[in-house]
Amino acid sequence: MTDAGFWHGRSGLVVPALLAAFTTYLLVGVLTMEVPEGTDFPGPRFFPLILIALGYLLSVLLVLHYLRHPEPVDTGDQDGGQWRTFTDWRAVAWCVGGFLVFALTIELLGWILAAAVLFWCVARGIGSTRGLFDASLALVVSSAVYLAFAQGLGLNLPAGVLGGF
């Protein structure tokens, strides 16, 4: 391992960071809460306050854990090559990005198109390289789902732009 900087093996600090962020969210919620007059103890703030105290305490413990025991990452060299990061960020970005586009456009484009985009992005992220074949497969799958669940079972899926025709 050539990379021996501070962050090496300490990327796990993101866990206490997330926990502290969520705890802070709860704290803001408690501080801005409008409690009706005459609420008996223990009121609506009681339980969240316990969680907030625990959340901050655990964040500190986790930070200490990762500072003391960095987790050396095995970047793997099974195929002769080495990766700089443990996680394949490009693949994750395709999947997360695909889902974000799906969530943003579902009502505009409708289920069939938005879900097909999602399917295509995830397939690409996992490692498929046949773009055109994937696109047609994605459309077939999303249409089949639309037929089965929206037409068949009566679930509420938006038709979107295709609904106009």
Partner: peptide
Amino acid sequence: PAPYLYGGITMFCGLGVYALSAAQ
């Protein structure tokens, strides 16, 4: 093939949650 398997699973994640609430 794994890409299609997980593509389909992700689609079903979106389907289940959206069908229930119809909220972006």
